[in-house]
Design a protein around this nucleic acid. Structure first.
Length: 824
RNA sequence: GCCGAAGUGGCGAAAUGGCAGACGCGGAGCACUCAAAAUGCUUUUCCGAAAGGAGUGCGGGUUCAAGUCCCGCCUUCGGCACCA
């Protein structure tokens, strides 16, 4: 063994052990016939936007604690890493510098990879994937074609979200409060023909299966997913429209209020609105067109302003209420959404706030049909939406809300005028992007044959070189200008045809990457079905809450589709999920422009890898944000030195019989082993670290005191410290392990199980309360009886004093821990 | 507006209904030192010299006993927000 240092020098220790681990490869998980049980621990893979930053450092430190814990517990842990390397930043950087996005991307990957290695992440470096490699994205294309075959990938024309700055369409999920998620530009609408994945076909399963994740995913994420999917139940009701052959179907959650409908509203930007306008008078047509133009100009920010006045155009047409034959005027308005339900509603102003406002604005009647405790909407000035008793509602009169909903559906269904229905807030996933740096969509457009899938044996459709292409955003895909690439012959008829020039949303890449790690280099399949059986689903997923909706929903969707086509045997990809918080500086997110950026490389240079990792784990609960101004990497470093010095104080030989060691120290060690494991498994890493600190403090006193460094119990304890510390501070732990006379490999040495016989408590402190206030304590045996404890308590001077001359009402005894004397 | 989570020392935070503040940062003091750094030890919720008292956002309640359970507020954060 190489020479030992006299002082704790983390930088020398790092230099010493990194090359040793490169030799040992303790975390490779691809060895055939490994008898250990499997555990798949996955960190969300990074986007290679530069070197690693503090956020990465936290995420990977915490993921590593979990991964290393299971490895210590004797599991065959797969803990892979890769890069989510397609996307706009690379493309934008390329445009700015006039380069190909590849160079920028792969340079950054190389840099991040080197940093991860130094940061001692326990990744299996033989399973790396990079989504911008053709060997990866060819399987995006293959999966697209499988979806296409299933009818789950389709093209349609509609008003889509358009980011004028990125010059590309955005998925619904990528629009946050009317702004582009990436660049914060105000998103507008544009009518385009685009590719979609039919995620709505899976809406029910995506919602219902969240129940199976209860307790294993953060409640917050489950709630967000549920809200996002947003299932509602109600009825579709057909309204005959005068002058139109087919009735207009509306969706309502409140068929019970059908008698209260006083008008109908159709989304102004829907096809139905245009059709109705064509049936109306020329004057109405003119006003409709003006209103529609106005609506199209406004963006989501304006549209979403809640205090906005209701606007609309009266068509002059009428719909017939199927339940009572009443004539209802049909209005067009932007407060009804074209792409939700049927784009048309029955308006019940008495019992819906939006309809109420509209009715007030245009002087339409407000008819109460459900009497609630709130009172009369006309007097209240707002709609009443609670439960109550139906009035003026024909056969529904006298029923409550729930009964009336059921009855109304029954009545409508009997006459063929309606049926129970449900709707989702969730929309289909728009996946085409008009940008270069992504997966080409494997479709060829032929004048004669239409959409023709690229034959699977011709995959991948590789991206052409960016040389000579103008990558600047201009609203159409740059690939369209790659003449040699885009012009092909139709696979069906052989005539000249064109490739689809859009690329896929990068969320496609990350929707199945966890399966690609299982067969990262396969040229013949996306992933081996048998490997998926053996390893998947992911046992523990770790990543930021920023992906609570998008990525997780899409990955869940992909998993269900893959399940249905028989490629995987499970329906949820991530069994357990841990969301770590963010790393802040002085209360806000770090950014160069704010001037509060803390560079990870500076922190590592100043404090060393171990101290930074330990700081991340010790700062607080993992899901909470860490304010770097509030934590102390130098404190962590100090502690690591304290722990490290213990190893030098151990003077017994390796393999010494621990059983002969000091009993108190051994009890402390085994109590620690029990608590520590529990803390890690429940993600209380900060508490786990505190337990190590306690043990280290205990050992310092024991070594300096009567026990001394030669006692076998000290070796047992210091070894336990080194092994536990290996989860957080792998360099320091490895060096301690060597000082203790062991071969390198503390990471797989095993944490050690707590010996039950050493967990038995013989004596403890009993407390005596008077009226709930602590008055005295005694050291007692655990076997003390209630009577003994009572006697001890009653004889206490302090207790007597506290009771004074009051009369005792009750004495509660919880032997051996507590006596509470209640006085009158 | 709706839904959800959280409020504990100067700070980050602990606490199966049973000793509030473990562990750490910061502070104070001491030892070692010519001195400093490093290290080690002591101390550190508040008020009070002490005895003692108060104390987990606020107000109620349940209980022998509440940071923890229940009801009502306040504040902060997060999500959703014309989804009929």
């Amino acid at each position: 063994m190489s020479e030992q240092l006299n002082e704790y020098d983390i930088f020398a220790i790092q230099e010493k052990w990194l090359p040793v681990w490169d030799e040992l490869k303790p975390f490779n998980s691809g060895i055939a016939g490994d008898p250990r049980p499997k555990k798949y621990v996955l960190d969300m893979f990074p986007y290679p936007s530069g070197d690693l930053h503090m956020g990465h450092a936290e995420a990977y430190a915490l993921g590593d604690v979990i991964s290393r814990y299971w490895a210590q517990k004797g599991f065959n842990v797969m803990h892979p890493i890769g890069w989510d390397s397609f996307g706009l930043p690379a493309e934008n950087a390329a445009i700015k510098r006039g380069l190909d996005p590849r160079g920028w991307t792969y340079d950054n990957i190389a840099q991040q990879r080197a940093s991860m290695r130094r940061y001692a992440c326990s990744f299996d470096w033989d399973r790396v994937i990079v989504t911008s490699d053709p060997i990866y994205y060819r399987w995006n294309q293959w999966l697209f074609l499988q979806f296409y075959k299933q009818g789950l990938a389709y093209r349609k024309n509609s008003n889509v979200n358009w980011c004028p700055s990125c010059q590309t369409v955005l998925a619904n999920e990528q629009v946050v409060g009317g702004l582009c998620e990436r660049c914060d530009s105000v998103v507008t609408k544009k009518a385009l023909t685009q590719w979609y994945f039919k995620v709505t076909d899976y809406a029910d399963r995506l919602l219902d299966d969240l129940d199976t994740l209860e307790g294993n995913w953060p409640a917050k994420v489950l709630t967000m997913q549920r809200n996002w999917i947003g299932r509602s139940t109600g009825a579709e009701v057909d309204f005959v429209v005068e002058g139109r052959a087919n009735p207009v179907t509306v969706y309502t959650t409140r068929p019970d209020t059908l008698f209260g409908a006083t008008f109908m509203v159709v989304a102004v930007d829907s096809d139905l609105a245009a059709e109705l306008a064509s049936l109306a008078t020329p004057d109405v047509r003119t006003r409709f067109q003006a209103y529609l133009d106005e609506t199209k100009k406004s963006n989501d920010i304006e549209r979403l302003a809640t205090d906005r006045k209701k606007t609309g155009v009266d068509t002059g047409l009428f719909a017939i209420n199927p339940i009572n034959g009443e004539k209802l005027p049909i209005w067009l308005s932007d407060y009804v959404l074209a792409d939700y339900g049927t784009g048309a509603i029955m308006a019940v102003p008495a019992h819906d706030d939006r309809d109420f406002e509209f009715a007030r604005e245009f002087g339409l009647p407000i008819r109460t049909v459900l009497q609630t405790e709130e009172g009369d909407p006309n007097e209240l000035g707002h709609a009443t939406t609670g439960d109550g008793i139906l009035v003026n509602s024909g056969e529904l009169t006298g029923l409550n809300k729930t009964e009336a909903i059921a009855k109304a559906i029954e009545l409508l269904a009997a006459q063929g005028k309606g049926k129970a229905a449900k709707n989702f807030r969730l929309r289909d996933w728009l996946i085409s992007r008009q940008r270069y740096w992504g997966t080409p969509i494997p479709i060829i457009h032929c004048a004669g044959c239409g959409e023709v899938p690229v034959p699977e044996n011709q995959l991948p459709v590789e991206l052409p070189s960016a040389a000579g292409l103008d990558l600047k955003p201009k609203g159409s895909s740059p690939l369209g200008a790659a003449e040699a690439w885009v012009n092909v012959s139709c696979p069906k008829c052989g005539k000249p045809a064109k490739r689809d020039s859009d690329t896929m949303d990068t969320f496609v890449d990350s929707s199945w990457y966890f399966l690609r790690y299982l067969s990262p280099n396969s040229e013949s399949v996306a992933f081996e079905v048998d490997e998926a059986k053996a390893w998947a689903p992911v046992d523990q997923y770790v990543g930021g809450v920023t992906h609570a909706i998008l990525h997780l929903l899409y990955a869940r969707f992909f998993t269900k589709v893959l399940h249905d086509i028989g490629l995987v045997d499970f329906e949820e990809p991530f069994t357990r999920l841990l969301n770590q918080g963010m790393v802040l500086m002085n209360g806000s997110a770090m950014s160069k422009s704010r001037g509060n950026l803390v560079r990870l490389s500076d922190q590592l240079d100043e404090h060393g890898v171990d101290a930074v990792r330990l700081t991340m784990a010790f700062a607080g609960p993992p899901e909470d944000d860490i304010d770097w101004a509030d934590v102390s990497p130098s404190g962590a470093s100090k502690f690591l030195g304290r722990a490290w010095r213990l190893a030098g104080d151990v003077s017994s030989k390796p393999g010494v019989d621990f059983a002969t060691g000091n009993k108190d120290v051994r009890k402390a060690t085994h109590g620690f082993l029990r608590d520590f494991a529990q803390n890690i498994e429940t993600f209380k890493f900060n508490v786990g670290v505190a337990k190590i600190m306690e043990l280290v403090n205990t050992l310092r006193k024991a070594i300096d005191g009567e026990v001394g460094g030669a006692d076998p119990a000290i070796r047992e304890a210091v070894e336990a410290v080194a092994k536990a510390l290996s989860l957080f501070a792998p360099y320091t732990a490895e060096d301690m392990w060597a000082q203790l006379g062991h071969q390198p490999g503390v990471a797989l040495a095993g944490l050690g199980d707590a010996d039950g016989s050493l967990l038995v408590v013989n004596n403890l402190t009993a407390v005596v309360q008077v009226d709930g206030k602590l008055r005295d304590k005694f050291d007692v045996s655990v076997s003390i009886t209630e009577d003994e404890l009572r006697e001890l308590a009653m004889n206490s001077y302090n207790v007597k004093k506290a009771i004074g001359d009051r009369e005792i009402a009750n004495i509660i005894i919880r032997a051996p821990k507590l006596v509470n004397i209640a006085t009158k």
